[in-house]
C-alpha cells in the first residue's frame, strides 16, 4: 500500500476523533484562556501532557496554584486507567523501534480504541505505520483545537452542542466490531457489568478505576474458564 493511501486510511479512521477532539480541545483552550493563560500555554500543555479529561482538571489546579503533591496524586488518579491500556500493546510497541516512545506517550482513550481496531490491516509494517499516524493525527487535532479555542474561543458562536457524542459513538462502534469478531463474549460482558456496577456504586467521578480493577481480577481468576487462547 502506498504511503499516501496509508495517510488517507489513518485520516478516515480518525475522523470521529477529529470531531470530538476539536470540540473538547476548543473547550479546553477557552477555559485556560479565561483562567488568564496565553495560548502558548494551551499549546505547551496539549503537546506535552496530552490527556483529555486531565487537562480540564489541570485548569482548576492552575487557577488554585495547587500544591505539587496534590497535582501529582490527582493526575495519577485521573489517569490511572491508562495503566490497563498498555498491557494490550507491549509486544507491538516494543517492535516499533524509534516510534515506540511516542506510541506510549500518546496512548489516550481514543487512540487506544482506534489501535484496538487495526487488526484488519494486512502486514505488520503497514499496521505499525498506520498506528503511528493515527496517534500523530489524533494529537494534532487535540493541539489545534486547544490553540484555536484559546485564541478564538470567545468568537465561536455556531451551535455545535453535542458533537462530542462522536466519542461515545466511536467507542460503541469499536465495541460492536470486537463483539462480532469473536465468539467469546465473556470479557465484554464482564467489562460492561463491572462498569455499570461501579458507576451505580461509586458515582460518575470515580468509577472507572475500580471497574477496571475488578474486571482484571475476574478475567485473571476466570482464565481457565475463558480460555488461554481467547
Amino acid at each position: 500500500m502506498s504511503t499516501l493511501r496509508l495517510w488517507r486510511k489513518a485520516f478516515l479512521r480518525t475522523i470521529p476523533v477529529l470531531m470530538g477532539y476539536s470540540v473538547l480541545g476548543i473547550a479546553f483552550g477557552l477555559l485556560l484562556q479565561q483562567a488568564g493563560y496565553h495560548w502558548l500555554w494551551a499549546l505547551g500543555i496539549s503537546v506535552f501532557v496530552f490527556a483529555g479529561s486531565m487537562q480540564f482538571v489541570l485548569v482548576g489546579l492552575l487557577s488554585q496554584q495547587a500544591p505539587l503533591t496534590t497535582v501529582a496524586i490527582t493526575t495519577l488518579l485521573v489517569n490511572s486507567r491508562h495503566i490497563f491500556y498498555g498491557i494490550s500493546f507491549i509486544e507491538r510497541f516494543r517492535s516499533m523501534g524509534r516510534r515506540a516512545p511516542y506510541m506510549i506517550f500518546s496512548l489516550t482513550d481514543e487512540t487506544y480504541a482506534l489501535l484496538c481496531a487495526t487488526g484488519d490491516v494486512g502486514s505488520k509494517e503497514e499496521r505499525d505505520t498506520l498506528s503511528f499516524r493515527i496517534a500523530v493525527l489524533n494529537q494534532s487535532y487535540w493541539v489545534s483545537g486547544s490553540v484555536i479555542g484559546s485564541v478564538l474561543g470567545s468568537y465561536i458562536s455556531f451551535d455545535i452542542t453535542g458533537i462530542d457524542f462522536a466519542m461515545t459513538a466511536l467507542f460503541t462502534v469499536i465495541f460492536i466490531e470486537q463483539w462480532l469478531s469473536t465468539k467469546r463474549h465473556v470479557p465484554a460482558v464482564i467489562g460492561a457489568a463491572c462498569a455499570i456496577g461501579s458507576l451505580l456504586l461509586f458515582g460518575p467521578e470515580n468509577f472507572l478505576l475500580p471497574a477496571l480493577m475488578v474486571a482484571v481480577t475476574i478475567l485473571l481468576a476466570g482464565r481457565s474458564l475463558i480460555g488461554e487462547d481467547a
Binding site: 490497563f84 491500556y85 498491557i87 494490550s88 482513550d109 487506544y112 480504541a113 484496538c116 461515545t168 467507542f171 460503541t172 469499536i174 465495541f175 470486537q178 463483539w179 469473536t182 467469546r184 463474549h185 470479557p187 465484554a188 460482558v189 464482564i190 467489562g191 460492561a192 463491572c194 462498569a195 455499570i196 458507576l199 472507572l208 471497574a211 477496571l212 474486571a215 482484571v216 478475567l219 475463558i226 481467547a230
Partner: peptide
C-alpha cells in the same frame, strides 16, 4: 481479553 472489556467500560 482486556480490549472488549475496556471498550464496554469506555462506552459507559
Amino acid at each position: 481479553v482486556l480490549p472488549p472489556a475496556v471498550m464496554a467500560a469506555l462506552v459507559v
